[in-house]
Design a protein around this nucleic acid. Structure first.
Lengths: 233, 233
DNA sequence: TCATCATCCTTACGTCGTAAGCCTTATGCT
DNA sequence: AGCATAAGGCTTACGACGTAAGGATGATGA
């Protein structure tokens, strides 16, 4: 043998240990697997042991690619931001911010655990910083002063994340479920204890076709229109 | 789940055992202690053992008053809602909703861990339901249709919770800290990587007197004014 | 060819939530 | 007043968690 294959850089030599080993671990693979696991089974199911299992590796092996669990979670958040289509600096600020808001919302629907992780007040990752950079650039380019940019950023992002939080905090997921759960909730208390809430449920929420998620665009446009009015303040 | 109702009241006979025992445990005392502990040391410091210690009791004794840790957390959330001054049904809807929003914000500043717990999508407690009932009543009384009430509720509460989440996710707490941290963050990447963000920091955020928390009222009034405009839609 | 070093694994520790069951003491009935 | 009951609090124990310490393996670079 002694093939002496000149190990010209990066020998793509395949490893073939006794048991066919999984592909080499990387931070990206760890993060991606963690995100898939959290998406599929909830963030509470994401333990280092379980994640290792998912990757065909022992829990401690993960620590080669991730400093600790907080680092893992921070990396996941940053990966979510990386999924978001950033606002275009060419388009009109309003449409750019609208599209971007919808993109954030879509990402948070794909990864509902993300909002819960955002209160970790850790240092934002590169994708997160880049995203914020472009949002600010978009607003500034649209004619917003620094002060108005700060205002606009606070309202818009506050609304986007808060809406996701609210959506997630609702104790029901599907419209069908809503009815039963609402009945059950109100039934625990004397009839007439929450008259306005009860009427609201009966007259609106329980009507066929209602879906809380549909509220998002109304609020978004409400805020965007209002910001347009204040743009020159 | 029916939460353990306290012991029958009957005789107020004072107990005096060998060792002066701490006051009798109640669900309220457990919840209050848990809230104090979370406020003082962060939600991650709240373990059943630690909470027991705080109350002079073993961890397992807490389970007489609380079904499990999730029930404890749900109870804490509901207690936070109970702290909020609900919207007056007499006042004009706009001022009532404004005062109430400020009251929610104040509560979330006092208990910053609350937003992180809100994605638990558990069944809301009595104080939470009552709060929502009055918010809906206030909007309906103010002339909002059911549909507009739903819209208004989603924007307002979304914004309030999202703002708190954003505030908490900032990696700095005090204005002084902001400068150092911002420098540090941007220094990790090539200069010019985040030009808009950098300019925004230098020209606005790092200017003396800036405090992110001050942004809250701008967004609140922006939304309230916009809602007023849509009230009759 | 060998030394180095990154990768992955084994073992172990302290902490967590909580199930099971015991002991003590207050309660409610006679 | 006396007693049966059950509620409140305690002890012990289990399995899962994050992760520190150090060992084994195999790829890389001299």
């Amino acid at each position: 043998m002694a093939t002496a294959t000149g190990p010209a850089r990066r020998t793509p030599r395949r490893r073939q240990t006794a048991q066919a080993r999984r592909e080499r671990l990387t931070r990206e693979r760890v993060l991606q697997s963690a995100i898939e696991l959290a998406d599929a089974s909830g963030i509470e199911a994401l333990s280092m042991r379980r994640l290792g299992e998912e990757l065909g590796v022992e829990a401690m092996s993960l620590y080669t690619h991730v400093a600790n669990k907080d680092d893992l979670l921070a990396g996941m958040i940053d990966a979510v931001f990386a999924e978001i289509t950033p606002p275009s600096l060419e388009a009109h600020w309003k449409t750019a911010m609208r599209d971007r808001a919808l993109s954030v919302r879509a990402a948070l629907l794909r990864h509902p655990w993300a909002t819960g992780l955002m209160d970790a007040n850790a240092a934002p990752g590169e994708a997160t910083l880049l995203h914020h950079d472009l949002v600010i650039g978009c607003l500034r380019g649209g004619g917003f002063s620094f002060a108005m940019t700060a205002h606009a950023f606070a309202v818009l992002d506050g609304y986007i994340y808060g809406f996701a939080l609210q959506d997630r905090s609702l104790p029901f997921e599907t419209p069908e479920e809503t009815g039963d759960l609402a009945q059950e909730m109100l039934a625990q208390f004397p009839a007439g204890r929450f008259p306005h809430l009860a009427a609201f449920m009966v007259e609106h929420v329980l009507k066929p076709g209602y879906d809380f998620g549909d509220e998002f665009e109304f609020g978004l446009d409400l805020i965007l229109d209002a910001l347009e009015r204040h743009r020159e303040d």
